[in-house]
Write a protein that binds this DNA or RNA. Structure first.
Length: 836
RNA sequence: GGGCGAGUGGCGGAACGGCAGACGCGCCGGCCUUAGGAGCCGGUGUCGCAAGACGUGCGAGUUCGAAUCUCGCCUCGCCCACCA
């Protein structure tokens, strides 16, 4: 049965989002509705979502990522918090420079145009971003402070310059941080080209100083997978350092790092990385030619070849011997490229019996395999290494330690080494210092000048920013375009005033993003990077959202930056982001990551034009769990549009008369009203907790159910009652964070004061939310056989009687009496039949 | 090779150890329409006329009761990967 809505529709106006969405956005903006004030007495809530790179157009993924936190921000605001929800642009970076090379547009121009376009597109989403706080990292007023930050780290010894073998992308002609090299084939994160090694003098940030603190996540609510990724990336290993004296007097003992000091009696040779500094001194005359050839070939190899574990293990004996400090055995020294120069001490003791790599090498090069740890009462395995996994191994052939459980021997041997002055406990990390130099133009210039007399000198703070000159040649040559800019290059030494040369590398854009959340607090402060008062008022960020792909990049760098700035006295907190939530990734329709080159980038503009932004927002939040993402498809968006149309109908049409309905035959108007109120208050509770938990899909389902209940109530003649008005108004309030425009429009049409977004969030009355009668499923042996409708307070024994009296239950019982009856109060009854 | 996560209708997905498939899409039928690619109403896991039986990747287990917990497989996704 449908009411005749035609007349009402004419009077109330058609559901036409285009007629009001832009109007409301303009008004919110003009009123500064979402501006976050520092002095607001309400509790602050800093909600942040990762700012985008201004690549050109906002795509569906940006909408997906931003809508979730916007919903939460809006709800928190209605719940009475002073919410700051800022947005900006991560606008330095390589694509701008490539555009300059490909199309002859200046990076600054290209970037500014993209920022402008994306800012406008962002506005059509109707998010509550406080645009008065916008930051653009390529703006000199921003990168001035990025440079200032570099100087603070430099002055504290946390930024240093070193010659190092670094990852080089031959296509982008730029070095990469270790975190920016991906995959088994060691390719560039940006363009996918396999990287090569180069020895370059580069700037690093000493993030390794913070390795241990970065492993601690106490007090922050972050997803387990992200914490795990960071933990694994930092890669802390506990073990021992062991010193192996050599026969060359002038050479220091070879230090090795091992996690298995209990196997030291099984060490039958040493292996040094080809780059190890002692190699040359330990190479004997007859071996020199072979050794030098091997070192040279290792140097030529790319990371890809070298890191390939499948490859046969190569290496050469260098002619010298060392002494195993525990067994006093004389063992040969080899070099092999499976030992990496950057990890541990760049040297290992090879224990073929207990390490698969050493085993493989020993077999190939005919070294002895000596088992020194075995399962209690077990035998040495044949033809393979024995890598202990249980806690039941004991040492054999290990001198005084023979017979000792391996777990115990680790400590005992380490202790004895320490007592002998030949080693001791040691910790090693996979984490390397953060390489921040980039041989590119479009980034913040590193504020350093080089003087022949005084070396690397920091640019005085009052001379910041070191500005990017606009007139440079962008051809990618592998050296910074700034190199060839004579005027930029020329500087005077801050120490002596002599002519000096300016650093021409720029900073990794991840430096920009490692502190942007601080700048939002006082984005226009021309005197300092931030106003300490504002920082005190807003930081740390209460809730941060973004993609999980930044787990070991941005998210780790930002933590490092905050900890470093804290230690320098600039900040008074330990962690930038108290809580973190990751959205899933929206893939292209072809199930691949969206990219311009694949041509699978979905653009929301057409959908917004056709359905309005509320529908697009809601649809994106409805397709599944927000943290899951998935391939893009617009099929189903009609359902959301119909839903909003129904909301429009129940909220704006005059009461329909309606005829008798099934509902009406079941109860009185009073009972129907009570049922509607119950639905209303249950929905408040569910939607509130769902929003808070980022479960937008189920929240929307609940609102659909409430809407359907309202539609039925109207057909039952309930329109015009208080319960009906409460249901509709509540629905609009719950919908306001997710679909801000239609909620505002209908709120006004119902005669309520502007703005719905300034209304208090509805609170569920638990007494109203519970049903007085419940339907209990009755099972026989766990299978559903009947249902009972009882009042909430029916005693258990009465329920049991009713269940046993059920015809169906009797049938399955077949005259026997039940073995037992399980009752879960308020949930179900299970009758267990006697077994045979 | 290591770590983490996920497998539920035709599809997206719901489901504190307790009625599997909420809510939507799609499809089928109907109403209203000059018309329907608009709107509304009803149906829709599979097999079966039905009563009913069977159903959450596969196989075991725990339990009165398992999509959910445990163990072993299979498949897919992500991260790391010669890290001593």
């Amino acid at each position: 049965m449908t009411t005749d809505t035609r007349a009402g529709t004419e009077r109330a106006g058609r559901f036409d989002p285009a007629s009001y969405e832009q109007r409301w956005r303009d008004r919110w903006e003009a009123d500064g509705l979402y501006r976050a004030d520092d002095g607001d007495p309400r509790d602050k809530h800093y909600l942040l979502t990762m700012y985008p790179y201004p690549s050109g157009d906002l795509h569906i993924g940006h909408w997906y990522a931003a809508t979730g936190p916007d919903i939460v921000a809006r709800m928190r605001r209605m719940q009475g918090l002073n919410v700051m929800f800022p947005m900006g642009f991560d606008s330095f970076g390589l694509p701008a420079e490539n555009a300059a090379i490909d199309r002859g547009v200046h990076p600054a121009e290209w970037t500014a145009a993209n920022v402008e376009r994306m800012r406008a597109q962002f506005r059509t989403m109707g998010c509550m971003f406080d645009w008065t706080r916008e930051v653009v990292t390529s703006d000199p007023e921003y990168y001035r402070w990025t440079q200032w930050l570099f100087l603070q780290l430099f002055n504290a010894g946390l930024a240093y310059r070193a010659m190092a073998p670094v990852d080089w992308c031959p296509r982008d002609q730029v070095v990469l941080a270790r975190e920016q090299v991906e995959g088994a084939d060691r390719h560039c994160w940006r363009c996918g080209t396999p990287v090569v090694k180069r020895d370059l003098e580069q700037w690093f940030f000493r993030i390794t100083n913070y390795a241990d603190e970065l492993l601690r996540f106490e007090g922050i609510d972050w997803p387990e997978p992200i914490r795990l990724m960071q933990t694994n990336w930092i890669g802390r290993s506990e073990g021992a350092e062991i010193h192996f004296p050599t026969e060359a007097e002038e050479v220091e003992p070879i230090r090795v790092f091992t996690t298995r000091p209990d196997t030291v009696f099984g060490a039958t040779f040493l292996v040094l990385a080809p780059e190890h500094p002692a190699v040359s001194a330990l190479t004997t005359g007859g071996r020199r030619a072979d050794v030098e050839a091997y070192v040279a070939s290792a140097r030529r190899e790319t990371e890809i070849e070298r890191m390939n574990a499948e490859r046969e293990k190569t290496g050469v004996f260098i002619g010298s011997y060392a002494v195993n400090p525990m067994s006093t055995e004389r063992i040969p020294i080899w070099i092999a490229d499976y030992v990496l120069p950057g990890y541990g001490t760049g040297a290992i003791m090879a224990v073929p019996a207990h390490d698969e790599r050493d085993y493989e090498f020993a077999v190939k090069h005919d070294r002895p395999v000596r088992y020194v740890v075995l399962p209690r009462g077990g035998e040495a395995p044949q033809g393979q290494a024995f890598v202990a996994h249980t806690h039941d191994e004991v040492l054999v052939d290990s001198g005084e330690f023979s017979g000792m459980p391996a777990a115990e021997a680790i400590g005992a041997i380490t202790q004895q080494l320490a007592d002998l002055g030949l080693g001791g406990p040691a910790v090693s990390y996979k984490l390397r210092d953060w390489l921040v130099s980039r041989q590119r133009y479009w980034g913040a210039p590193i504020p350093i000048v080089y003087c022949d007399q005084h070396g690397a000198q920091p640019v005085p703070e009052d001379q910041l920013p070191v500005r990017l000159p606009p007139d440079v040649d962008f051809a990618p040559t592998g050296i910074s375009p700034l190199q060839s800019h004579a005027a930029f290059l020329r500087a005077s030494c801050p120490a002596c005033g002599a002519e000096a040369r300016r650093e021409t590398d720029t900073m990794d854009t991840f430096v920009d993003s490692a502190w942007y959340f601080l700048r939002y607090c006082s984005p226009h402060d021309a005197e300092r990077p931030w106003d300490p008062e504002a920082i005190r008022a807003w930081l740390p960020v209460d809730l941060y959202t973004g993609g999980a792909e930044h787990a070991v990049l941005h998210l780790m760098y930002a933590r490092f930056m905050v900890k470093a700035l804290r230690d320098l006295g600039h900040l008074a907190f330990d962690e930038p982001f108290l809580a973190l939530r990751n959205q899933g990734q929206i893939l292209g329709a072809d199930h691949h990551r969206m990219s311009k080159s694949r041509g699978n980038v979905a653009n929301p503009d057409e959908l917004v034009e056709r359905y309005g932004s509320d529908t697009v927002r809601l649809f994106l939040m409805f397709i599944g769990p927000w943290d899951q993402g998935g391939p893009w498809s617009a099929s189903g968006i009609e359902g959301i549009h119909r839903f909003l149309g129904r909301v429009w109908g129940v909220a704006s049409e005059p009461p329909g008369k309606g005829g008798p309905s099934a509902d009406q035959l079941l109860g009185t108007a009073e009972e129907l009203a009570r049922a509607l109120r119950r639905a209303t208050h249950a929905t408040i509770a569910e939607v509130s907790s769902d929003y808070g938990d980022f479960r937008f899909n189920t929240a929307i389902s609940r609102m659909m159910e409430l809407t359907n209940a309202i539609v039925r109530a109207r057909e039952s003649g309930l329109a015009g009652t208080e319960a009906y008005a409460e249901a509709v108004d509540t629905l609009l309030l719950l919908l306001a964070p997710a679909a801000p425009h239609i909620a505002e429009e209908l709120w006004q049409r119902r005669g309520h004061p502007y703005s719905i977004h300034a209304q208090p969030w509805p609170v569920a009355d638990p007494a109203l939310a519970v049903a007085e009668t419940i339907e209990l499923p009755v099972q026989v042996d766990g299978k559903l056989r009947d249902r009972l409708v009882v009042t909430r307070d029916t005693p258990a024994d009465e329920i049991e009687q009713m269940a046993l009296a059920s015809e169906n239950v009797q049938r399955y019982l077949g005259g026997r009496s039940p073995q037992r009856v399980v009752q879960i109060p308020g949930r179900l009854v299970n009758v267990v039949t006697p077994g045979e």
